[in-house]
Amino acid sequence: MSTYVNHPARALDRTTSILGRLLLGFSLLFLLLPAILIVVLSFGTDPRVRFPPEGWGLDRYVDVFTSGSWGGPLLLSLEVALYAAVGTLVVALPLVFAANRSRLPGRSLLEGVAIAPVVIPISAYAVGMYAVFAELDLIGTQRGVVLAHITHALPLVVIVLSTSLEQIRTELELAAMTMGATRLRAWGGITLRLLLPAVVSGFLFGFISSFDEAVLITFLGGSGLVTLPKYIFDSVQYSVDPAITAIATLLMFAVTFLMLLSSTLRRKEGR
């Protein structure tokens, strides 16, 4: 240990690194513990959720797929998420091209406006939307929820697409054009082709963001529209259906898988 006495700086380094690791460990534990707990609980068989479970089995998963009460919300969630993801791309793609590649006046404002929802607290945003949607008779309609989810997903998808587009040099398009490609072909065959991984990634982000969304649907879904997160929320509020531990576990794995898929795509593109 005499080396550390001789090198106080190194001893300090060691302390910092130990503290850093402790912090990291605690954060991970704190973040993951509830998730792990849910996974563990989902394999219990007790009539009420309790820890530790007294019996082990797949009863809750069987319940999810046979009770019939989860199917409707799941399908609605998938449908809304699909429309929202596609809709977000339809808005975001032209937007990032206009903001990054055109000489449109006010183009920087465009991206700013698209990203703005991210800084507004979602509950405040939802209240505002409620007022507007009530005026437009969109409360409780699937169209309305999809629209709300598009605005909710837009900032993230715009950021994903625009950081990727910035990496694609305009010279590539110009090079293709001097070599005889029309503007459209240079754009489609080179720029859009290189943007493809980001587009897929943006789609997944949009999908997850909608699939996972519980606040906007609570405000705007009315009484009729119940997506999966809403259903989970309701079932916890009024009675604790033990099957939610199973559905939460399934959701967690599905979303993790999509996230990994999207980040793999983005890493591949960066290569």
């Binding site: 010279e171 590539l172 110009l174 090079a175 293709a176 054009m177």
Partner: peptide, 20 residues
């Protein structure tokens, strides 16, 4: 004329090779 119709070749400083 459009760049594609000018029968020219161009070499860019950053090469502008198609990465894919």
């Amino acid at each position: 004329l459009e760049p594609s119709e000018r029968r020219l070749g161009m070499v860019f400083q950053n090469y502008a090779l198609f990465p894919h």
